[in-house]
Design a protein around this nucleic acid. Structure first.
Length: 258
DNA sequence: ATGCCGTGGAAACCACGA
């Protein structure tokens, strides 16, 4: 079973690239972030024609998350991260599919830091950690994936010294992510590629992609039930080089069937 | 070191992203 995550930076602007990549990569489940479309403006028909069911939670202008699946339609569990009814951003959707519990998330960027946006990011991370504690205690195999907007370590950024004051890399951010991981989650990419330089995002400007000046911020967190089912993990970085690409590349894992 | 680019939405610029 192949599961992917892809921050598309507008699902409608990205539709040709998304369809081309789906055709090439043929994942069974896909988590999308940054739809940048209201609920009624999601390209559901085009995605259905490509062979995928979809559930999604849109929002005007910003954010937006979706879960696509081949074969069975994902059975939605919730479409908001618990813990703050005032938080109206569409950044979280959770569903059951293929016998897995799948959480698709788009964590707040948090810049500029310090400031209210950074506070919101840290609160969101706290809420995610609280919710994740319940998920990891359940008997279900859980995949928690998406754009975390967190650079976990020095080797996940091309020039760590330039990012120390950035919301993606500040000590508070890394510490919060570390305490989430300490619940027992596995970073799928790092488990299989502990020492490789691997990025999932490259800026649109400064020729970041051709210079390979990237960040690793899109992650797959796996619950312990999945530890012995992880077969492969990687980044489709060539997709970042396509015409009209997102600034993120798709990330994927392969799980052994149970 | 930096929104230099890309997108959406409103209004011919600005907010926002990482």
């Amino acid at each position: 079973m192949k599961i992917a995550t892809y921050n598309v930076n507008s699902v409608n602007a990205r539709l040709p690239v998304l369809l081309r990549w789906l055709e090439e990569s043929k994942p069974d489940v896909v988590c999308l972030q940054e739809l940048k479309a209201v609920q009624d403006n999601f390209p559901g028909q085009a995605i259905e024609d490509a062979g995928y069911h979809a559930i999604w939670h849109g929002q005007k202008s910003w954010n937006g998350v979706a879960i696509l699946s081949r074969g069975e339609k994902a059975e939605e569990v919730c479409r908001a991260l618990p813990g703050d009814p005032e938080d109206l951003h569409s950044r979280y959707i959770e569903a059951m599919v293929g016998g897995l519990h799948i959480a698709c998330l788009y964590l707040p960027n948090g810049n500029p830091a310090p400031g209210p946006k950074f506070d919101y990011k840290l609160r969101w991370l706290d809420r995610l950690t609280a919710h994740a504690a319940g998920l990891i205690k359940s008997d279900m195999p859980v995949v928690m994936t998406g754009d975390y907007n967190v650079i976990p370590t020095d080797k996940d950024v091309y020039k760590p010294e330039r990012w120390v004051d950035d919301a993606l890399f500040r000590p508070e951010t890394r510490a919060a992510f570390k305490s989430l991981m300490a619940q027992g989650w596995t970073d799928a990419i790092r488990k299989l590629h502990p020492d490789e330089t691997i990025y999932t995002f490259w800026d649109y400007f400064r020729n970041a992609y051709s210079r390979d000046a990237g960040l690793r911020i899109d992650h797959f967190l796996l619950s312990p039930q999945l530890d012995n089912r992880l077969l492969a993990a990687g980044v489709d970085r060539h997709v970042r080089g396509w015409e009209k690409s997102s600034d993120h590349a798709p990330v994927w894992i392969e799980l052994a069937s149970k």
